[in-house]
Design a binder for these strands. Sequence first.
DNA 1: CTAATACCTGCATAATTATGTAGTTTAGCC
DNA 2: GGCTAAACTACATAATTATGCAGGTATTAG
Lengths: 214, 214
Amino acid sequence: MKKNVIRVSIYEDNKALRESLSKLVETLPEFELCKAYPNALNIKEETGKLIPDVILMDIGMPGLSGIEAVKIVKDNFPDVKVIMQTVFDDDDKVFRSICAGAVGYMLKKSAPSDLIDAIKQAACGGAPMTPSIASKVLHLFRQQHIPVNNEVELSVREKEILTSLTNGFSYKMIAEKCCISIDTVRFHIKNIYEKLHVHSMTEAVSKALKDRLI
Amino acid sequence: MKKNVIRVSIYEDNKALRESLSKLVETLPEFELCKAYPNALNIKEETGKLIPDVILMDIGMPGLSGIEAVKIVKDNFPDVKVIMQTVFDDDDKVFRSICAGAVGYMLKKSAPSDLIDAIKQAACGGAPMTPSIASKVLHLFRQQHIPVNNEVELSVREKEILTSLTNGFSYKMIAEKCCISIDTVRFHIKNIYEKLHVHSMTEAVSKALKDRLI
DNA sequence: CTAATACCTGCATAATTATGTAGTTTAGCC
DNA sequence: GGCTAAACTACATAATTATGCAGGTATTAG
């Protein structure tokens, strides 16, 4: 990781908290405070001007919510890491934040040292998050990587056609897309069916998706 | 989180490292060392007897690899958290570890304080992992939660039938499964097509999966 | 009570798909 | 050079699917 200082912006409507966060960031040599704002109404311009490495974002601000703000930041400055700050460990909000593009989130009651860690983690690509979110994310991750059926060997063309099938294409459309005759499409699909032990397009699609053949 | 001590087992074939890890765990009042083993050949019995909260597992051990060992632990004691320890930041191995059931992993060169943090995190349901893994997992997570098409309102029966289609069922099979006539299946599918603006089973399946309608 | 909704059934026809058989071309391998 | 795998083309038939039309029942909201 680069040994530069980490540039931090803060969005927090509570004045006392905003100032104490600012102080925390300013005090440490490894951080540099870009600026602290009480709302995110102009976040696009503000971020564009100062380009922080990390933004600390209160999830509930008047005007523009933290979640909406994250989306704006991610759409315009995908490299800027955003850490959400919440009072409550609200799974739903955190989920939505992460989906909007936040890389992590911290409870406001967290110790300053935890917050510092989180900022550092975020800056170098990590994902500081709460245990309950982490376990949900991990669980989902595992589901996505369940056993893959590798016994089936499809040729390049067959994979191409199977992919088209899963995208909802008909024989005719596949023939056009691949510049081959419809009879050839039939031929390949026949072979695919044999290899997958199925007898219809939907079965093939289902199996392809389940076994991650494509 | 429970204020009990965290019971830790260690699997590590390198004697020096095993002993220094043991010492680290023993020294701290918040941890209790169950036992340290040089290999995982009898991990099922060993884990069953002592039931640790967290296992520190070397990823590369002679006899039974750490990844295989994780699987055994997870299959038999799903509540035991396993943290993998690796020398290299090998994405593939870590991915496989996580899929096997590990909740996190640490580089062996990590500072003791980081390891302690990781054990604590793991014990309370967290997922201590490396930034590169974290970001991959997060990315995947977002993909799974991309915008859902909520404009389409399917009735209960229609959803049921659409689900059957995505599982590769034919009209006939759906009719049997739902105990309705094949003409009724036709009727419902016609309506589904109208709502989804499609004209074939595969298109419907494709759209259903893409828009997470089911 | 009436309208609306979801669910159900039947019939008919055109289009598409499933499956078999049969042969050609092309690129890489021993 | 001959062999093999992958890709391609063609024709034929049975089965399934797509779509339209017509109408029945049951539950619910106004």
